[in-house]
Design a protein around this nucleic acid. Structure first.
Length: 556
RNA sequence: AGACCCAUGGUGUAAUGGUAGCACUCCGGUUUUUGGUACCGUCAGUCAAGGUUCGAGUCCUUGUGGGUCUACCA
């Protein structure tokens, strides 16, 4: 068997273990900011961090990076925890908040001041911006850069005590205003904010910046491998600078490329627009790339994990084909989703030689891929529904479905001979008359008739009418936000949701429960939508089955 | 362009100086009481130019192309 190929992060970790770094320990963390919902991109980071922890007998912390009270809310914390659990991961007792470390962080900032590595700057945001220079020209030192340690200590303590207004002063690292890396030009460490914090209340008047809080939080938790996305690459020098100056646990930041999927967007700002402008039903709309949206769409956690692992981990920018995500879902559901009969676009069939009033209960296997899924009973009688597209009066070549003068098999039923179409005054087919072959019952067929097509059906008198929502990609271009000149909203697919209000389902399917995965025979995978009521069931299409017949027709 | 990072079939990812492999997609076929699944097969790749080496996708140089960075956001 081929050796399992390892990604570059696994290679780094294994190298560290081999060298006995940190005694061979591996500790990772997933550090979301509680200011929004998790999406498919986060799923990659979650899987990577937790998988590394598990694979190398280490641990993975969940740490909320809550250093900005202005944008963060408690309810995001709860939703994020729920989504991670749903994905199948657990942080045990290792739930942390950066806000838990505010006191320690404050003391470390004081240490920097004592070492002469930090100073209080009274400049305004605009002044600091101007002093920063550009990528090609060095910045200039702030006039407050030379303050004494005593003055810095005094001012910083008074910042903390709430003596100063927001924006009036900041604490900065004293590094190098001419550094070629803009992030090293005396980055901010603390700013004044009077906003109450969802965890720490009104205890603090100052809040640490990401560039300071993140490395120090990692260090406090003894994180060995701090995995983050590529856009933080230029921040690694600051990360290392703080930990070196502070002399604390030497966590190491490693960057990987974020996940992009075509026909999807993950920008928080743009997703919010979709919701606020009403292009979708909400953050958990089945077309949204959020974890809650994927869940409502009918993606299994297993399929998302498989996907997140399949996309690989590397440092080059990438756009994953959405068909890989769909493949992962079909592959998972094929073996676990019970097959059920649903007629999305009903056409009535009357079997003229079948006794009126008679109902036969047919034995139907639930999943040919899994015998332990068992069997169910399906009614059969004189009047049934089939898909309208499964009947054609004048069919094209290789059409193996119902057409006058031809036999066709009904799955878990009989072989039918199609006799004639009944039409209304405008020529629309209103029902089709057939005769059935008596000794052709599924499982005990002695007719010897060979048919090319097998159709699904729902018996009319026992059918339940439900709603089905079909989904297509939300955008009609692969990268909706590729062109900054064009609003991505203009690329929304107007037919991304197709609501069918008169769908007929078999009795067993009417017992569907939330969280159950179904395959609608010959159609696709479906789940119950939470909008469902006792009286009215609503199903969402997760993904269609592959359809080589449709593909063949499209080419013509 | 100042720094940093990246470059392998259509897409994504392996090959750690020694036969360019795997998955998805596409196309073709076999099986099939799902035009599903499964199975088989075809097409298709090392950004360019130099250099080092017996041997380079891999190391070096230069170029080209792409990405990130000038928030009191993360």
């Amino acid at each position: 068997m081929a050796e399992e190929s390892k990604n570059f992060i696994e290679q780094i970790i294994e190298g560290d273990i081999r060298k006995g770094k940190h005694g061979g320990a591996v500790r990772t963390r997933f550090p979301p900011e509680p200011n929004g919902y998790l999406h498919i991109g986060h799923a990659k980071a979650i899987c990577l961090n937790f998988d590394m922890g598990q694979k190398y007998n280490g641990t993975t912390n969940l740490r909320f990076d809550d250093t900005n009270p202005a944008t963060e809310e408690e309810h995001f914390v709860e939703n994020i925890k729920k989504d991670i659990h749903w994905l199948g991961y657990d942080w045990d007792e290792r739930l942390y908040f950066a806000s838990d470390y505010f006191q320690e962080l404050y003391e470390y900032a004081l240490q920097l001041i004592e070492q002469g590595d930090a100073y209080v700057d009274d400049s305004s945001a605009e002044e600091i911006g101007q002093q920063k220079g550009t990528v090609t020209t060095p910045g200039i030192n702030s006039p407050f850069r030379g303050r004494s340690i005593e003055e810095n200590r005094d001012l910083f303590i008074r910042m903390k005590e709430g003596e100063f207004e927001e924006g009036s002063r900041v604490l900065r690292a004293r590094i190098d205003m001419a550094h070629p890396n803009m992030n090293m030009r005396d980055p901010l460490i603390y700013r004044i904010k009077q906003t109450p914090h969802h965890q720490s209340g009104s205890t603090w008047n100052i809040y640490p910046m990401y560039d300071f809080a993140h490395p120090v939080s990692d260090s406090i938790e003894n994180i060995t491998h701090s995995l983050c996305t590529l856009e933080f690459e230029n921040h690694r020098p600051i990360y290392d600078w703080f930990l070196e100056k502070l002399g604390t646990f030497p966590s190491r930041q490693i960057e990987f490329a974020r996940l992009n999927v075509n026909y999807m967007i993950t920008s928080k700002r743009r997703l919010r627009r979709l919701v606020e402008e009403g292009h979708v039903r909400g953050w958990d709309d089945p077309r949204m790339p959020t974890i809650s949206g994927l869940r409502r769409r009918g993606f299994s956690p297993e399929s998302i994990r498989t996907f997140a692992r399949s996309v690989g981990v590397a440092k080059r920018d990438n756009v994953i084909d959405i068909s890989l995500l769909e493949h992962c879902l079909r592959d998972d559901l094929n073996t676990r989703a019970n097959r059920m009969m649903a007629i999305l676009d009903p056409l009535k069939i009357v079997i003229t030689n079948y006794p009126e009033g008679q109902v036969e209960w047919m034995e139907a296997e639930n999943n040919p891929e899994n015998e332990s899924a068992g069997i169910r009973q399906m009614p059969f009688s004189r009047e049934l529904y089939i898909e309208r597209e499964d009947f054609m009066e004048n069919p094209p070549k290789k059409y193996f479905r119902m057409t006058p003068g031809e036999y066709v098999r009904l799955k878990h039923g009989y072989i039918l001979m199609c006799e004639k179409a009944v039409k209304d005054s405008e020529g629309n087919v209103t029902e089709v008359h057939c005769t059935f072959v008596e000794n052709s019952k599924s499982g005990e067929d002695t007719s010897g008739i060979k048919v090319k097509g097998t159709l699904h059906y729902v018996e009319a008198s026992h059918a339940t009418e439900v709603e089905v929502r079909l989904y297509d990609r939300l955008f009609n271009v692969p990268i909706p936000d590729a062109d900054p000149e064009v609003d991505f909203i203009t690329h929304i697919n107007p037919n991304s949701e197709n609501v069918l209000t008169r769908v007929m389902i078999e009795p067993e399917l009417a017992k569907a429960q939330p969280g159950e995965y179904f395959q609608f025979f010959r159609k696709g995978y479906f789940v119950l939508d939470p909008d469902s009521t006792e009286e009215r069931l609503i199903f969402n299409q997760s993904v269609a089955l592959r359809d080589s017949w449709a593909k063949l027709q499209q080419k013509k």
